[in-house]
Design a protein around this nucleic acid. Structure first.
Lengths: 220, 220
DNA sequence: CCTACCGATCGGTAGG
DNA sequence: CCTACCGATCGGTAGG
């Protein structure tokens, strides 16, 4: 075995995907050359193209890989928010934490939304369709019971919130880079998003009720 | 005169800038070739480079042009929100309207924040520094009088809000492209941003007071 | 503002 | 997984 720089033989495919998300998130798809990704892994561009066929196919696989990752993590994120008092708030909080902990994918997502909104929309429906449907059903139940605003479109709402979360996390990070400030108000930021998500969804009276509950509830 | 496709002789420079913002916003700086911009105007790439020297210089001038535009529009945006009951809300609303009406520049801004946060930060300080200082002073006054949260960093807050507004406007637009939905809840969206902006800034009691005032105030 | 031209880089193929 | 190679496009220059 002549071997490359690595001890292991053939996780190269995996490593290409990882470097690609990173570089796509940092510099965009157009701003990242095949050679740059290959070099980051330590192989030649022709080797990368042996695995992925074309740059566009690499693009697709990177996307599919991220959506797959999210599909696998979603149950955990949802279940982790189950125990709390204010379940809605903690769910949104979990989503914020989730994206904050995975900034490459969050950044990739934001860029994809800018570059090819329709294509990524289709991908999402394919990979996360059932989950979206599940949550949409809950939303529609809430509408019938009068808790949720009648003018809320479930699909639209979901996209909007996810985008605000991913966008805020990504761009707030960029803001810190500008100001040199450490995210000293990240708690407040999260709170702001939670309230926004709530106000967009619930009718005013119920939203107010949730706040009262959350604020007046005992610490435990 | 052999003339180009246009009646007028030499607003070419201006037209290059306009097409460039549009294309940079749509496809990003890296995703836009000099030739593409030139073609959109109806000239050769060498002509574009005659006016702007290099692609990077075009980039700078496009940025400077947008910031200049914002500098000129800011007074109007601020003054238009003066008359209303809840001045803070209407100011944020004006900012939302402002970006919504100028999606190319909003999109450019979001992309710049992703691509080169530090550089655009510097540009902003140069072009909009005095305005930022003005608003920051107001915020700091509010902190001393106890109306504004003590943990708010004025600069950081401003960036954050502008980003959320520009990001939400831009990406919500993208969302519509995915779902085919017309922004049927755009009013609600704006309201959500206003509340978020408020909650991030004001202490809870004052924020609640503003809401009460706004809701209980007579229609006129 | 154009014609003519260039070196570098790009994504990609052949062939092993 | 590499070497060798390619056509196309890119940003940019010369010279008018």
């Amino acid at each position: 075995m002549k071997a490359g720089r690595q001890g292991r033989p053939s996780d190269v495919r995996r490593r290409i995907l990882d470097e690609a998300v990173r570089l796509f998130a940092e510099n965009g798809f157009q701003g990242t050359s095949v050679q740059a990704v290959a070099a980051a892994v330590g192989v030649k561009n022709s080797s990368l193209l042996y695995y992925f066929g074309s740059k566009e196919q690499l693009h697709e696989e990177v996307l599919a890989d991220s959506l797959d990752h999210w599909k696998n993590e979603l149950p955990r994120v949802i279940s982790e928010s189950t125990t709390s008092r204010d379940r809605f708030a903690s769910l949104v909080e979990e989503v914020v934490k989730f994206f904050a902990a995975d900034q490459n994918r969050a950044g990739l997502f934001v860029r994809e939304m800018l570059d090819r909104p329709k294509e990524i929309g289709a991908h999402i429906r394919v990979h996360l369709g059932p989950w979206i449907q599940l949550i949409a059903d809950y939303i529609n139940m809430g509408k019938q019971s009068g808790i949720i605003r009648s003018n809320v479109d479930a699909d639209y709402y979901l996209f909007q919130i996810i985008l605000i979360v991913a966008g805020t996390v990504t761009l707030t990070n960029a803001t810190s880079a500008i100001l040199g400030t450490e995210s000293r108000s990240s708690m407040t930021m999260t709170e702001g998003i939670v309230r926004m998500a709530r106000d967009l969804l619930f009718v005013e009276s119920y939203s107010a009720y949730l706040e009262t509950t959350a604020m007046s509830a005992p610490a435990n």
